[in-house]
Design a protein around this nucleic acid. Sequence first.
DNA 1: AGCCTATGTCAGCGATCGATGACTTTTTAT
DNA 2: ATAAAAAGTCATCGATCGCTGACATAGGCT
Lengths: 95, 95
Amino acid sequence: MLVRTPAELGAVLRDRRKKLKLDQSTFAKRIGVSRQWVIEVEHGHARAELGLILRALDALDIRLDASTEQAPARGATRPAVDINAIVAKARKKKA
Amino acid sequence: MLVRTPAELGAVLRDRRKKLKLDQSTFAKRIGVSRQWVIEVEHGHARAELGLILRALDALDIRLDASTEQAPARGATRPAVDINAIVAKARKKKA
DNA sequence: AGCCTATGTCAGCGATCGATGACTTTTTAT
DNA sequence: ATAAAAAGTCATCGATCGCTGACATAGGCT
């Protein structure tokens, strides 16, 4: 499942929690937050703390993968071979 | 790349930003945050806002994938076929 | 060396987080 | 139908966010 927005993330968490048959209370305790927090996050709270979110995902055995693939849309990717950068990098490694 | 902690997330962002040859300032402007924010997040700030994080990932064309696969560790997964749940679901759809 | 850019640090400030506890509404089960 | 459980709402409060702006360091180039 692709995650683009806080709302999508909330849906992922809720669905998974239900699949595991946890209620919000026990889930909240398991990750060390209040039940209130669970409610808000599941509803897509955009300003939730990153660290708590990651803990919640972990508690539900959800893996998060960051990939660069498949995004041919925006701006110029692949600026072709940049010989200067290569030289600079090589120099740095030596030093 | 698997993301488990705020620090790992920060590293992913930084690496990608550098690959795209953006400095923190222009990157910050692009996602609508302060340079200060970029610094802290790249350093693994655990309490960063989820929404801003997602915007940052998007700005760098990084895809986030949430999967359930490969986590045979913790508790009882796959509680076998749950006939009650299936019936309940069917009922709900009708109503 | 001297300059310039990128990055990192500090202090102050308004806005908002997440916790708590009480209450209401919705859902589930008998 | 009715009782219990789960989910949602509200207000309050201390702690911390992210922003700003100025300054400090670090690296690269001529």
